[in-house]
């Protein structure tokens, strides 16, 4: 430091006390990172800077939107008619399915009432568009065009037409960042749809693969099993499809089997996604836990060890 100061006049006449400024700014950056990593006290700062970046995001998205708009407005009448009839058929099918679903929902509510269980969570859904994929070079993040002004909040669940996509990690004013389930730092509480076996699905950094690292060798799981969100952990509502198991490797001397699954949602080619608002009652989580019988496998014990994003309230499910 002292040596640098004495040589200053010779080296760079334009920069008084350059080393001092470096130390000051480096110290400040480290302090900010420390605060940012520990808590969310810097949210207002982020939002303020984020508002200045938003016009750039819109600008970046403009060519893509323009291209789509041109594509839509120059489609021929014939094409439109074809698409229209296809959509009509699809709508009819969906409606038919929905009718059955509403009957099932009513039945479910009745049965739950008989069991004196609480009503399931009701969900509201809203469509959002993706502004950019993977802005962050180190994580699987996408930016959507809805923010706190639309009611988006941190930790909100995001799905597409086929399954769970991720959750909001940073809700800005007019755009938000969403962490995908394929990010290596993302853990998602899931259950096997076939038998209710609960475990954790962890991202791998590969868009087409999730790991299930905490399943014992003797657990009842097969290739082709559908994994759905278990609703434990609180971030994701229960019952949304997450992934399909594709391979199970059981190594006898290892405590856990190596199970991989393919996400149901097309994580690297989504264009529109849906935000879910779940109207959770205060005591909902408690009653959910009371309902679930504690006869699951010992794999649940290891949930406490996994320091994921949303496994906080997981560890109490085992007996």
């Amino acid at each position: 430091m002292a040596a640098a100061k004495s040589k200053r006049q010779h080296r760079s006449p334009y920069s008084p006390a350059l080393g001092l400024r470096l130390l000051l700014l480096a110290g400040l950056s480290i302090l900010i990172q420390y605060i940012d990593h520990r808590d969310n006290h810097l949210d207002t700062v982020r939002k303020a800077i984020g508002a200045t970046v938003y016009p750039l995001r819109v600008l970046v998205d403009a060519p893509v939107s323009a291209w789509r708009w041109i594509g839509e407005s120059t489609a021929s009448r014939n094409q439109l008619q074809l698409e229209n009839s296809r959509l009509n058929v699809e709508r009819l099918l969906t409606q038919a399915r929905l009718q059955r679903y509403s009957a099932l929902e009513a039945e479910n509510a009745r049965l739950r009432e008989m069991l004196e269980a609480r009503a399931r969570v009701r969900e509201q859904v809203r469509v959002a568009e993706i502004l950019s994929v993977s802005a962050n070079p180190f994580r699987h993040v996408l930016v959507i065009d809805k923010g706190t002004s639309d009611g988006v909040y941190d930790g909100q669940a995001i799905v597409d037409a086929n399954g769970v996509v991720g959750q909001i990690i940073e809700a800005g004013v007019a755009s938000s960042q969403c962490l995908l389930i394929s990010d290596p730092g993302h853990d998602l509480p899931v259950e096997v749809n076939r038998n209710g076996l609960r475990t954790i699905a962890r991202g791998t950094g590969d868009f087409n693969r999730l790991d299930l690292p905490f399943l014992p060798n003797n657990s009842d799981i097969e290739p082709g099993d559908l994994l759905v969100t278990s609703g434990l952990g609180g971030a994701f509502p229960a019952g949304y499809p997450v992934a399909v198991v594709d391979s199970i490797t059981r190594v006898p001397q290892e405590p856990f089997a190596a199970v991989t699954a393919t996400p149901s949602a097309a994580l690297n080619q989504v264009r529109e996604i849906m935000l879910i608002w779940s109207e959770v009652e205060e005591s909902e989580v408690d009653s959910e836990e009371a309902e679930t019988p504690a006869t699951e496998d010992p794999a649940i014990e290891s949930d406490g060890a996994s320091d994921g994003d949303n496994t906080d309230s997981e560890g109490d499910a085992d007996e």
């Binding site: 900010i32 970046v53 930016v143």
Partner: peptide, 24 residues
Amino acid sequence: DVAQGTLLGQHALAFTIVIYVTVK
């Protein structure tokens, strides 16, 4: 940092160090 959603201060620190070397 805000645009890419990285830790606030990460790129700031890296930029500062690199520009320090450049100016020096």
